[in-house]
Each structure stands twice: as C-alpha cells, then as structure tokens.
Amino acid sequence: MDIPLPAFIPDNLINKDHMNNETHISSYSSLAIVLIILLLLTMISVTVTGFHLGPFAVAAALIIASIKVASVITYFMHVKFESLFMKLMISGVFVIFALIIIITFIDYLLR
C-alpha cells in the first residue's frame, strides 16, 4: 500500500543539473548590448524620478530595478544557459523572499 511515486516529476527533469556538459560562451557584443540596456534603464529611472509620480514613483523605480536585476541574472550571470533546475532554484528563492515580505506586511498594513 505504498503511495505511488508521483509521475508528474520525472527523474530526468529533476536531474537536469547533471546533464549540461558543454558550456555556453557569451559573446563580447551580447554582453555590451546588455550593458547598454542597463545604462538606458538607469537613465529612465533617474528621469522618471523628476516627474513626481507620487505613490507610483516607488513602483516605477522598483519595476525598473527588477528588470535590471533580471537582465543581470539572465545574461551576465549566464542563468539563461543553466539547467532547468538552477532556473527553478533561483526563481524559487526570489519567490520565497517576496512571500516573506508580503506576509510581514499582513501585519504592518492591516494593523
């Protein structure tokens, strides 16, 4: 009467981290393009501050920062070319952190 192992998580999916033997080499030009995008986003972020968006200023700044962080992780840190497991692990960590903030704010916002 053993509970059957879940078929929805095949072992080869979890074990993807064993399987990437060839390393991807990022080209110089692609890294340069990412830097240009990052600098542009920084410029936008600084400019937007001047608009006095009120409560949306924080949201705008954080959204831009998140896009920047995502591109650093994806391209500079090569996560785009990592195994599926690594991608899941990295996004999972950010999700857990977000949950911790949200749950703390159940207290602070509804007091």
Partner: peptide, 9 residues
Amino acid sequence: GMSYWARWF
C-alpha cells in the same frame, strides 16, 4: 500586538 489578519494568517 500584531494585526488581526496577521494573527489569523
């Protein structure tokens, strides 16, 4: 002294 909803959660 947490909020009601936090205690509930």
